[in-house]
Write a protein that binds this DNA or RNA. Structure first.
Lengths: 166, 166
DNA sequence: CTGTACTTTCAGAAATAAATGAAAGCAAAT
DNA sequence: ATTTGCTTTCATTTATTTCTGAAAGTACAG
């Protein structure tokens, strides 16, 4: 296989994967391109390689920076901005967990808290409250487990955990 | 808060959560409704409660069954089909992991295998292959870790794991 | 201050995903 | 063999998300 073909395939695949992970296709493709690129790339470079518009490139680069999956790099003497991907995949996964936990899990827990104060003395209400409490308990556990996971370092994760769990 | 209002809020929140997890909004709402419902519901019931069309209800119930998050229940003497949600949340999470791993992670690993055979003796190719191998290694580790996780039982997970990890 | 080299914004266009509802399928009941 | 009660399909419509490109913004250089 040719290098160019391989690169192309990787970008496609990473894009498809990302689009199921709260990261849109283009965002993931930019990340893929940067992952494969040993040197940093400019917005211009990215637009050309992925054949996307300036606006699209800009918006998604910024989003990647917000997610801390990409960093800005300023070359001395140059006005243009360059970008580098976070290449430590464990760091990438961690960031995604952190972001999505904040955006999804935490609001859910808040709602569960609110609705567990439903009042009424009938069976239906009791059952509802019981279920909600159960879900709340599970979510809280998931939340703290993820916190711990995120604090754990990469080597620990891939090494020790795997052994322990077997 | 009123029972009805609480129910409504939960369905909304679960729908929003689901829509970020490869489960579309309506699918997640149906699941939420069934989670809250101590008895099984018919397609008709679901259509009414969520105010959705027959086709929509049917398609999403089907999908939930495919994901093993909902089961069919046939009441003796009745022609109509009834549905119940999987209520063990750890089971729900497990199913989602299993399905998404199959649909996303495994194809990614396949692509990584393919493209790690890129040929060429220049620096660029070498760097490409190195990066791809690294990603492949990480993905395979994630894959087997998830396998192990899925095999572990709920109590072990929420209990022992949490203690161990601290 | 003015030009230059960039980055950011955003209204509208295009692409994609999801929902509708009527028609077709299916199988138990008569 | 036909009706009846329900499920499934799918072409069309509707909603949502993403992308474009031109215009506006920013800031350094001369």
């Amino acid at each position: 296989m040719e290098l160019l073909e391989g690169k192309e395939k990787f970008i496609q695949a990473w894009g498809a994967l990302g689009s199921n992970w709260g990261v849109n296709r283009t965002m993931a493709q930019i990340h893929a391109l940067l992952l494969l690129s040993p040197e940093s790339l400019s917005a211009e470079n990215i637009m050309e390689e992925l054949k996307i518009s300036r606006g699209n490139a800009n918006m998604n680069i910024r989003a990647l920076i917000d997610w801390r999956l990409v960093y800005k790099e300023l070359k001395p003497g140059e006005r243009k901005e360059y970008f580098v991907a976070e290449k430590d995949l464990w760091e990438v996964v961690k960031q995604i967990i952190i972001q999505r936990k904040k955006k999804e899990l935490e609001p859910m827990i808040k709602v569960l808290d609110e609705i567990s104060s439903v009042e009424g003395d009938d069976i239906a209400t009791e059952e509802f409250v019981k279920m909600v409490r159960e879900i709340k308990l599970f979510s809280s556990k998931a939340d703290s487990t993820l916190d711990t996971l995120v604090k754990a370092d990469s080597n620990w994760f891939v090494g020790t955990f795997l052994k322990m769990i077997r």
